[in-house]
């Protein structure tokens, strides 16, 4: 039970849903300031992994550490402090439909930082500028494209100046141009602000352009971990099958 040297550490994490195991002894550590990609087939537990870190799911067994403290045993109130330091960009952008972009971005400022509405809105405008959306502050999410919504969701996450940002499939469903813009944003966050990014993704173009390290999840465990170059050159046939996107090979995928 000693505190780890890395910023985030999952130790022998197990999680099952309705008796079906998803994570089966997953161990992974994330260093400060790095961009770590978690890759793997659908349903392997990538999103499940990151949701444990902010308390949306509870592990069945194992330990999760963040900045020298164990977080898997915290209650909902305890996780509020963690969520001020770890931001999350969800797969569906998850902007609130009844609010304008500026109000969406201002919400965490009002709640976490207890700012007044006018102050929060002024700060929200600055954040929207960071993601090139100043002209759309008064629009509602339904009026915008997927890429814009995703960027607004990133702006909302950045309002809290998080030390860590968890991205759940940030480029899924986006056209290649918007996907690369998101990649650039993630890279800027890491390089300019020192933010640690944990990215769940299938997008090989993102992985090979911005990842510092890649963790490949298979059968509920981290099967392989390394730099993108190491993964590309890996002799492991399972890793090679995933990276090359081959439909047949040694990889066991449920349903096929």
């Amino acid at each position: 039970m000693t505190a780890p040297a890395s910023l985030i550490e999952f130790r022998d994490v197990h999680k099952a849903f309705d008796g079906k195991p998803v994570l089966r002894g997953m161990t992974l550590s994330v260093g400060k300031g790095e961009i770590l990609f978690i890759i793997g087939t659908s349903g392997v537990g990538k999103s499940v992994t990151i949701k444990h870190l902010v308390g949306f799911l509870r592990i069945d067994q194992g330990e999760i550490w963040f900045d020298g403290k164990r977080v898997d045993q915290l209650d909902e109130k305890g996780f509020y402090a963690v969520r001020r330091r770890i931001g999350m960009v969800f797969q569906n952008a998850t902007l609130f439909d009844s609010m304008t972009l500026a109000e969406n971005v201002a919400l965490p400022l009002r709640k976490h930082k207890k700012l007044r509405q006018a102050t929060a809105l002024a700060e929200a405008m600055g954040r929207l500028e960071q993601v090139y959306l100043t002209g759309f502050a008064d629009r509602f999410p339904a009026e915008l494209s997927d890429g814009m919504r995703k960027r607004a969701a990133i702006a909302r996450t950045l309002t809290m100046d998080p030390e860590v940002v968890l991205f759940d499939e940030p480029t899924t469903g986006l056209d290649p141009v918007n996907a690369r813009r998101i990649d650039r944003l993630i890279l800027e966050l890491s390089r300019n602000l020192g933010v640690t990014a944990v990215v769940v993704s299938h997008d090989l173009a993102s992985i090979f352009s911005i990842a510092d390290r890649v963790a490949f999840l298979y059968q509920g465990r981290v099967h392989a971990v390394g730099t993108p170059a190491e993964m590309r050159d890996s002799p492991d046939p399972i890793v090679q099958q995933f990276i090359q996107g081959q439909s047949s090979g040694p990889m066991e995928t449920p349903g096929f």
């Binding site: 001020r84 609130f96 709640k111």
Partner: peptide, 13 residues
């Protein structure tokens, strides 16, 4: 199901 409830929790609500 679209994770907006989780997004609320992330926003401190």
């Amino acid at each position: 199901v679209t994770e907006q409830v989780d997004a609320l929790r992330m926003s401190g609500v």
